[in-house]
Design a protein around this nucleic acid. Structure first.
Lengths: 119, 119
DNA sequence: TATATACTGAACTAAATGGTTCAGTATATA
DNA sequence: TATATACTGAACCATTTAGTTCAGTATATA
């Protein structure tokens, strides 16, 4: 089976790590080098480089090396797909729980009328 | 270091797998047993049980066993935190790119006025 | 030119993931 | 009571992840 990796797989996986969420927030305030980020998150350069690579693979970060410094910036992806997926889920969720609420409401009414619970 | 696992870690990790996203969508339409889900996603019972456990740990699904059947339903979490995180990120993102746009705009103006590029 | 800085790649590690099979247990059904 | 169904747990497996160290390379700086 040729495994097509959905962008959602990569971005949600990228977001599942607190260090990477922190890096995104940081880059939202200002661009940063690998060294900057490694220091801020108490990690080796190599370790931070890997996190940045994961974010880059997900399209959330872009980097450019000038001289010896690699500068990291936010990528072009505004996470629109991710937001859309969650919003669609929330619609399903709401519909589902409204359906449940109706049932609960019906049971309450039966109880008030002293009708038997229909097993 | 006592590792506090943020709810976002668990839910984003849960969402990073297409099978689990599919299960959530399915449960948005109707409750289902482990067997139902295993069949729909072409997987062993044991395999599906693990996915459901991951979703349950993230609070996205609840299950209840009646007789021999374990029924899975959507959990109470509407992924509000997840949506909020992404929305906050999108605000940062927009601000960041508007800042960049201003710089580009300024450069354009200079070009029009034939001013030198200030190094 | 010598030294310090910034990164990179390979190799290693421990743990987690996503699946499987196999051998149960508990519950329904004929 | 015998059989089929639904799940469960343990064990295994290959791969990925999240980090490390170590040994480089390339670039600045004194």
């Amino acid at each position: 089976m040729v495994q097509y990796i959905a962008p959602l797989d990569l971005s949600f996986a990228a977001l599942s790590d607190p260090t990477r969420r922190g890096v995104l927030e940081q880059l939202g305030r200002s661009d940063a080098s690998i060294t900057d980020l490694a220091e801020r998150f108490h990690m080796t350069l190599t370790g931070m480089k890997k996190h940045v690579s994961v974010l880059e693979a997900a399209g959330l970060v872009v980097t450019k090396k000038v001289g010896r410094v690699r500068t990291c910036r936010l990528g072009r992806r505004k996470m629109a797909e991710e937001a859309a997926w969650i919003e669609q889920y929330q619609q399903l969720w709401t519909a589902r729980f409204e359906a449940l609420d109706e049932i609960v409401e019906e049971l309450k009414q039966r109880e008030l009328n002293n009708e038997p619970d229909p097993k």
